[in-house]
Design a protein around this nucleic acid. Sequence first.
DNA 1: GTGAAAGCGCTAACAC
DNA 2: GTGTTAGCGCTTTCAC
Lengths: 322, 322
Amino acid sequence: MATIYEVAARAGVSPATVSRLFNGSFVSADKADSIRRAAAELNFTPNRTARRLRKQSSELIALLIPDVENPFFTALARGVEDRAQQAGFSLVLCNTDDDPGKEEHYLDIAASEQMAGVILTPTAGEVDLGAIAALGRPVVAVDRTTPYPVDAVKIDNRAVGIAATGALFDAGFRRVACIAGPAGIEATEERYLGWREVATARGGGDLDGFLQHANYRVDGGRSAMQRLLELPVPPDAVVTTNNLMAVGALQVLAEAGISPRELGVAVVGDLPFTTLTPDAVAQVHLPARHLGTTAAAMLLDRIGGDSQPPRTVVLRGELRAG
Amino acid sequence: MATIYEVAARAGVSPATVSRLFNGSFVSADKADSIRRAAAELNFTPNRTARRLRKQSSELIALLIPDVENPFFTALARGVEDRAQQAGFSLVLCNTDDDPGKEEHYLDIAASEQMAGVILTPTAGEVDLGAIAALGRPVVAVDRTTPYPVDAVKIDNRAVGIAATGALFDAGFRRVACIAGPAGIEATEERYLGWREVATARGGGDLDGFLQHANYRVDGGRSAMQRLLELPVPPDAVVTTNNLMAVGALQVLAEAGISPRELGVAVVGDLPFTTLTPDAVAQVHLPARHLGTTAAAMLLDRIGGDSQPPRTVVLRGELRAG
DNA sequence: GTGAAAGCGCTAACAC
DNA sequence: GTGTTAGCGCTTTCAC
């Protein structure tokens, strides 16, 4: 790896001039030429580590998500990446597994790597975002909010819970259960509150056993659906508060030979890679990618020096079918 | 962000001693104590950028994949991450979109960031892996091989193509078409060669129009399936050479009211998040995660100094149902 | 076992 | 415009 000194020597200029050329300052045309030639001959690429040490910052953004294998979060990541790339920033994707320890670990890394900023879906744990914020590194929370005064982009979770549940009642179902994520995660709480509101108002009867907490993955949805089917008086429809749990629920139904038209299903989120026809299941589309681009835009603003008080942007879901 | 000098001053030792403590050299117990206390009080985290500049290497591995939104690659990434984490390495995930330009860009970044090594699914373009290899950074190709002499982990693609096609003939289908990925991508070529071999031997008739190239995504599978259905004499079954194209094909069939039992479907790969019962579609399971752990293990060996000639590990798929 | 000091490659004052 | 130089925070000889 050639250095700026070797390029300078070969081009007959000082290292500073080489640096200037690569950083946009004006350099006389003839010197610029010979520097470019020398750089090409030596296959020179500026050493980003040295630059970062000197500048105390980099063009790297960290994105911390709970699960890279969940299409909701990869779509979100895609959005962040698109926006970041436009601005010349690269993305470092980190998987927290919803483990506060891992979240903290990656936050430390982001700080000690002089990354320009962090976008994260905070875990339920009480991780100190103050530390990194105090370093002057902007932080944006996405999909979930935090007690810390940082920017946030989220979904109107109560509304999507209401929309999904409402779609089921509109279709004629009356005993609507809910498969919710782990207790303690904000997005889930708000979504099932939406369900409870509608289910209580329109369902009439009591909701005993109709709320099932589960982990946010396919297997969580499976076991919750199984428990619902074993109820003395099972529901005639079910709402899930995320995409993957719906997959699990639908798998259990398919294996039991029950079609989603017999036992209604509505999802908060999008059924990933579904091969069902669009009208089989009510889906409340969540703008995952847009969540990402919005968060990235906010972060880039902050990196650019924007210092207004923390904002929270709320995005809306959209009922798609059913 | 506190520095090693501040910690040293507070603990009444030299910076070198602080460094030694954090790097495993022996330091007398009393000094170690006061250093630890000082570090804790100052909330000290070693600056990784400075360390890297000095050491000319880092505990970072780059993983370049074509599509973060494809569950095959996220599973692979998960495997790499698991193995890397065990060894104290962190992962930087980069999306190439199968664009040689982006691949090259990220390779440059990996080099100029002093990353410890690179694992990549090479694009079809002729990107120079020699440059980074010459820098002494190990490179492992995964899922696809390259003309460069680097380690590789791949699938026995011909065998999985044969297995998927064979399953369809075993189930009684006779006019078996193939939806293959873009021409020029090795994995696809080999898989469809497997299909052709079996289809020719067991299908008898000619294969005119039965080979459809498409992009590797859901929409590619959709349009290819549509073309197949419009054939004067359509196939009675279809093999797809990756997971996402199968989703597209199944969507088109579902919309046309054709069940996968009428028109047989076999997939090379795993149907992601499927809600179909396991017997509906023949799937040749691809050990994506294992591909990742294997590649990571090889890379870590190389980082550790292993210098045997490049190896290629071939993993096998496994017929799962149908 | 510990300290002093050089240097990794770059950028940004500061002179000219 | 361009060169000289200091220094970002760390690790690592080299003495002691």
